[in-house]
Design a protein around this nucleic acid. Sequence first.
DNA 1: TGTTGACCTTGCCATCATGTCAAGGTTTAC
DNA 2: GTAAACCTTGACATGATGGCAAGGTCAACA
Lengths: 149, 149
Amino acid sequence: MQIGAAAKVTGVSAKMIRHYEAIGLVPSADRRESNYRDYGPSDVHRLGFIRRARDLGFSIEEIRDLLRLWGDRDRSSADVKRLTLAHIADLEQKIAALKDMRDTLSHLAGCCDGDHRPDCPIIKGLEGLAPLPATHHHHRAHDNLRHGS
Amino acid sequence: MQIGAAAKVTGVSAKMIRHYEAIGLVPSADRRESNYRDYGPSDVHRLGFIRRARDLGFSIEEIRDLLRLWGDRDRSSADVKRLTLAHIADLEQKIAALKDMRDTLSHLAGCCDGDHRPDCPIIKGLEGLAPLPATHHHHRAHDNLRHGS
DNA sequence: TGTTGACCTTGCCATCATGTCAAGGTTTAC
DNA sequence: GTAAACCTTGACATGATGGCAAGGTCAACA
């Protein structure tokens, strides 16, 4: 199977398959005489595993650990569970931080008439005139939560 | 006020203040004879505005729009509200995607004994043997949600 | 006067996961 | 024999931020 076909069946782009190989997340693929990469069923299986782990928000390094455990016949399910619970805690933190933002903004938006006049509680909130009430900063959970594009 | 002091009072790092200047988010700061940047109260006010907007998850480009509206005496609060509601919708989507991940993982973790034996439903779920039940992919909301470090 | 230390300057590289583009090789089908 | 569809590597971009390095400026102190 060539890389394009492997990409199609696993949902991992050809670009990322090469990338995962480059960073050692997957072993170097076999090559044909043409120098094209060649993927067998077990390679495809591994890529599917990675795909699902990514979809569940695991980072590359976490997936590296998961793959190690996957291939380890003597693993304990406790190890897998520990990793998973840590990731869940991570997700909870991000969810809480995003909820804080949403709640603060919803409150401000709820106070905003949204008409043609320039007077706007949202702007005032950002200006610092209102102290952004009920934003719980104590756990500092919204590091790493700036959103992309 | 030098950049370090401005950074301290606004909570925006000196590095980022220079960056915001470089990308035109804030006007070029005045310079003293020493070539050091010099910040006045209105500059500090603007940086505080930016800081709060970042804390609420607005992207740089959204903040650019907010700053334009902030400085526009003829703005309508409706414009601000529209931008804010769009951002709230963005946050909702991310929250939902993260919750999906968390719920799926919690389910798998709940099925996992977490003992010394290698048998593990989490690994099986990632392997694709179990179909990852109740993960709603229809809105494709978890693009852009891969987590950092 | 000279030195030390705290501040500032610019500029480059790194992160993380992914995409895009370019220039070129291979294979297959017409 | 040529066109199309694939593959190869490599470089560069994203977004928001941090870090480091090499050097300029300034204030205080011996």
